[in-house]
Simulated assay, not measured.
Amino acid sequence: MEITYRLATEADLIDIVQMLADDKLGARREKFHVPLPDSYGQAFKIIAADPHQELTVAVLNGEIVGTFQLTFIQYLTYQGGIRAQIEAVRVKSTYRNKGIGRQFFLYAIDRARSKGAHLIQLTTDKERPEARRFYESLGFSASHEGMKLQLK
């Protein structure tokens, strides 16, 4: 399978949001209908304008089969290091369990290295134990205990 990667365009939003909504957790938080709510277009414009954000789509035979967002965080620790955060990783449901997610991550890890990141991190919902096993198979470790505070 020859997957190509490119930065998402606004025209890709319907495919991206549909993938984000296509699982039990995503269905609770996303609002997928056409036309999309304006909030998705507004968010896309902010992401696309930020040089520290990369919203990427994976394309196979002309079809978008996945997406992920990389954020590059500059900080003072690690002697002014850069940390990459990967979020919103989704594979189109008809392509799941075919090794595409592994290819996404290998690409994202290489992309983070090429941008000078010394570390790539992610969070995973506790309701997704299979995702945690997948991330561990890629070499990720649960080195920290994360916490969140819902503001809305």
Rank of each mutant, 00 (worst) to 15 (best):
E136V: 00
E87A: 10
I109V: 03
Y107V: 11
E136D: 02
T56C: 11
E30K: 11
L119Q: 12
V65A: 06
F72Q: 03
Q121I: 03
F72K: 05
K92N: 06
D38G: 15
G139P: 08
L7K: 14
A58V: 05
Q85D: 14
G139V: 08
S93F: 02
V91W: 00
A84N: 02
A88C: 15
R29L: 10
A117F: 01
L36I: 03
Q53V: 10
H52R: 15
V17I: 12
L119E: 14
A21W: 04
Q53D: 13
R83F: 07
R6I: 00
M147I: 00
N97C: 09
G41H: 13
P51Q: 09
K148N: 10
V91I: 03
E145V: 04
S114C: 14
L122S: 01
R113W: 10
L76E: 09
T94H: 09
G101M: 01
T9R: 03
K115V: 09
G41P: 11
K24T: 08
T67D: 13
L25F: 02
K31P: 14
E136N: 05
E10A: 10
V17S: 01
R29I: 13
K126E: 07
Q150C: 13
K152L: 12
G26K: 04
A49W: 06
E127C: 09
E54R: 12
R128D: 01
E2V: 14
M147E: 00
K45N: 08
R28Y: 12
Y95N: 03
Y75A: 15
Y5M: 07
R128E: 04
R83D: 09
T56L: 12
Q121M: 07
D110I: 09
F104D: 02
Q79P: 10
R6V: 04
F72N: 00
R83W: 06
I14C: 11
I16W: 05
L76G: 13
P37Y: 03
E2Q: 15
R83I: 08
G26R: 06
R113H: 11
I73M: 12
V91F: 01
E63H: 12
R128Q: 07
D38Q: 14
F72L: 05
A131R: 00
A108K: 07
T94Y: 03
V57E: 02
V91P: 01
P129S: 07
V89Q: 07
G80A: 02
A58R: 07
Q53L: 11
M19N: 07
A8I: 05
D15N: 13
L138I: 09
G80E: 01
F68M: 12
G116Q: 07
V65M: 04
R96L: 04
T4V: 13
I3E: 04
I16M: 09
G66H: 05
L76S: 12
E10N: 08
V91H: 01
K92D: 11
R96K: 11
R111Y: 06
L119A: 12
F104N: 06
L25G: 00
E127G: 10
T77F: 13
F68Q: 08
M1K: 14
R90S: 15
V57S: 05
Q121D: 06
Y135S: 02
Q42M: 15
